[in-house]
Each structure stands twice: as C-alpha cells, then as structure tokens.
Computed example of a mutant assay.
Amino acid sequence: MRGKEDSVGDDDVSLFAQEVADIKPLKKSEIYLRKKGPQVDFHERQSAAIMVTEADRNHLTHDFVEKVDPNDMLEFKRAGVQDGVFKRLRQGKYGIEARLDLHRHTVAQAREQVYQFADDCMRNDIRVAILVHGKGERTPDPDNRAMLKSYVNKWLRDLDQVMAFHTAQRYHGGLGAVYILFKKTEKARLDDWEKHQKR
C-alpha cells in the first residue's frame, strides 16, 4: 500500500501532464532564431566589441606629460638605429609613405588616432611616415599651448613600433610635424634578405 505522500506526488504529475498536453515543442531552428524586441544588428555589436578591444590595448597615457614649447625641436632614436639612417630621416630624405594630421583633434581623439596609425603602418609595411601635430602656439590658454605636441613627444617614445622620430623640415611642416621611422616588419626583413641573396 502506498503512503499519502506517494499519492500526492502522482496527482501533481497527472495535473502537470494535463496542463502541458496542448503545448508543441519548438523546432531547433526556431529556438535559436526567435528574439524578443527589435531585430539585433550583430555586425554593429561586433564592430563595437572590436573598438572596445582596441581601446583596451591602447597603453598610451592620457595623464600629465612633460610639456614642450611650441618652438622646441623633437628628436628620439632607439639604440640600434644607425646614425646615417637617423640623419637621413632628420633631413627629410626618405620618401613619406603615410601621413596623419591631428589638427582640431582633442587629446583623447589624438591618442586613439596615433595608436591606430602606428598599428596600420606596421600592418602595411610602412617604414617612414609624417605626423602633423601643430605647434599649438595660437591657443588662447597659455597652459594648453603645444599640448598635442607634448603628448605626441611622449606617445611616440612609448610605441615599440617607432624606432626614431624627428621634427620635420620646414617644407613638410617644420616645428608642427615629425618624421617617424617605423620598425621593419618580418615580411620587410625577408624581402630585404631575398634581394641581397639575388645580388
């Protein structure tokens, strides 16, 4: 003989079976395709996710940096860059393969642009580029003069892809621009090696 608890359990099961008798299961395709609310644009979400990932990778500072004067010359060279190479860069004797103009950019916008520009140059095997930062001498607030120039001076030093940079010649923007020498990519190194082998 079954106890009271067992009979209650059977009643519950029986009641449940009656309640769900008319329900039809969804097909597998319907389970994944049905959405509540407006249709979701997954391409938009993916683009946003990529932008967030890029921003997360951006290590360039947006905090205080050492100020430079609008008329200061900027120069930087990593160990291993030959003096002759740096001299030709300084004199503007290399062909410029890419250009970034930061006029009318905020510091936050410039930070993103410089980071992305360096990344793009490396992906496209660009060795020499020019970055126009302006002198910032017309800024009404004296404390903000040469602000972008000061940040560029710091950011380029913090980018591993940058081997050297120097204030441009007057015909390329002078004190408001810098030439940048980027690291050779593995592909460029291999191409150079193959050229030397053929000689």
Rank of each mutant, 00 (worst) to 15 (best):
H166W: 08
A129F: 06
K67G: 02
D6V: 09
I96W: 05
C121G: 02
Q39K: 15
P25R: 15
K135N: 05
H105N: 11
E186A: 12
Q113V: 00
D158N: 11
I50G: 00
D41T: 06
G95L: 10
H62C: 08
L74W: 09
A164H: 05
V162N: 03
G80W: 10
L156E: 01
R170S: 07
R57I: 07
H103I: 04
D22E: 07
Y115S: 02
D56K: 14
G3E: 13
D158P: 01
Q197R: 15
T139D: 10
I50N: 04
C121W: 08
I130A: 11
R88P: 00
V81F: 02
A110G: 15
V132L: 15
M73K: 14
P70S: 09
W155K: 07
E54V: 09
A21S: 15
A49D: 09
Q91N: 12
D10N: 04
E97Q: 15
N58L: 10
G95N: 14
D41F: 05
H166T: 10
G37V: 07
H62N: 14
A164M: 07
M73F: 11
I23N: 08
Q197I: 11
L131S: 00
L15A: 13
D143T: 07
V8G: 00
V107N: 03
E5M: 13
R57V: 02
D101Q: 04
E66F: 13
D11G: 03
H172N: 15
D125I: 02
G92C: 04
P142A: 07
E97Y: 09
Q116W: 12
H196F: 05
V178R: 01
D143V: 03
F16G: 06
T106W: 10
A164K: 04
Y179F: 15
M51W: 12
C121N: 11
D119I: 02
Y171C: 03
D158T: 01
D158V: 02
S29F: 10
Q113C: 03
H196L: 12
A21G: 06
A108E: 14
D10R: 14
E19R: 14
A177Y: 03
E194F: 14
N144P: 00
L190T: 11
T167D: 05
A164E: 04
Q18H: 08
M147Q: 13
Y171P: 01
E186C: 03
R138W: 07
N124L: 08
L190W: 12
D120N: 09
G37R: 12
A49Q: 14
F16K: 14
